[in-house]
């Protein structure tokens, strides 16, 4: 027990655990919308796109959050805009926009070097170097996202389930989509240094997929996914310290264990059972 509590004596670890738990919960929350929209790849793509912003802001000595944030949001909106053109699918749009941005980031860092977080930390995440400012920024982004989801819950749900009917029913779908892209960009931006470019997508997808296997209700899925993400972040960060492995890796592996456990115990059964069970309608009251 003492060994488990030992790292909590270090301020850097406490900050890391707070950031990982918040980041896990935040990505779990947003991940529900991302996976249900069939945009699982966007987390992977956007984190790579933001890496380009990370490199650029490092070189021109602009604040990392500002530079990479603007870059990430611009990339997300570009993907959205390209996707709305009927001829190009969302996967292709993500592929083009984000890999180009990542390639640019790698080229810039190779030529000019980095003045901010290290290249390895940006790619795989690190608990070292999490500042108090990082904790406050992530807390602010998490609070903003929570309030945004609460206020726009119905519009977000409708636009995710059936954008065409939502549009006809008065939901401003383009605005809702832009809001989702904004919180997604902010979440990736704030979690990048802890989880890393290459693994942040998993923190968006795994909790949501696990939650989907546990419930058929949307509100419950949001709660489950947020909780699972937060718990995986907490456990993963502790494992990172004890095993001396990059934090992003242990957080993702913890989520993967949860996925396998839930898949083994409930996976597939719920949906197939639901598909088979039909209840006759009652007579229509005229």
């Amino acid at each position: 027990m003492a060994t488990l509590l030992d790292p909590f004596h270090y301020a850097f670890f406490v900050k890391g655990v707070i950031v990982a738990t918040l980041a896990g919960g935040l990505c779990g929350l947003i991940g529900v919308y991302i996976t249900l929209r069939g945009m699982s790849y966007i987390g992977h793509g956007l984190s790579h796109a933001i890496f380009g912003g990370f490199a650029a802001s490092s070189i021109i000595t602009v604040n990392y959050y500002l530079g990479a944030g603007i870059w990430g949001l611009a990339s997300a909106l570009a993907i959205n805009a390209v996707t709305r053109r009927r001829r190009i699918g969302v996967d292709a749009a993500i592929g083009v926009v984000t890999t180009a941005s990542f390639a640019l980031g790698v080229a810039l860092l190779t030529v000019f070097g980095t003045k901010g977080p290290s290249f390895d930390a940006a790619l795989f995440g690190s608990i070292i170097g999490v500042s108090s400012a990082d904790v406050w920024i992530l807390t602010g982004i998490t609070a903003f996202t929570g309030v945004a989801v609460l206020i726009n819950y119905r519009a977000l749900l409708f636009a995710t389930f059936d954008p065409e009917v939502a549009d006809v029913s008065g939901v401003r779908v383009a605005r809702v989509d832009a809001l989702l892209m904004l919180v997604l960009s902010l979440a990736i931006l704030a979690t990048l240094t802890v989880i890393g470019v290459t693994l942040v997508a998993a923190t968006l997808i795994i909790p949501a997929v696990v939650a989907r296997m546990l419930t058929n209700r949307f509100a419950h899925m949001l709660a489950w996914s947020t909780g699972i993400g937060a718990v995986c972040g907490f456990i993963g960060m502790n494992l990172s310290y004890h095993l001396d492995v990059p934090s992003g890796t242990t957080i993702v592996l913890t989520g993967t264990v949860a996925f396998i456990a839930v898949l083994a115990s409930t996976g597939g059964r719920r949906l197939s059972r639901a598909a088979r069970r039909e209840v006759p309608a009652q007579p229509v009251r005229s």
Binding site: L150, Y153, R154, A155, L157, F158, F161, D162, A166, S169, G170, V171, A219
Partner: peptide
Amino acid sequence: MARRRGWP
């Protein structure tokens, strides 16, 4: 969903 405004 038809009631697009309001709490969850």
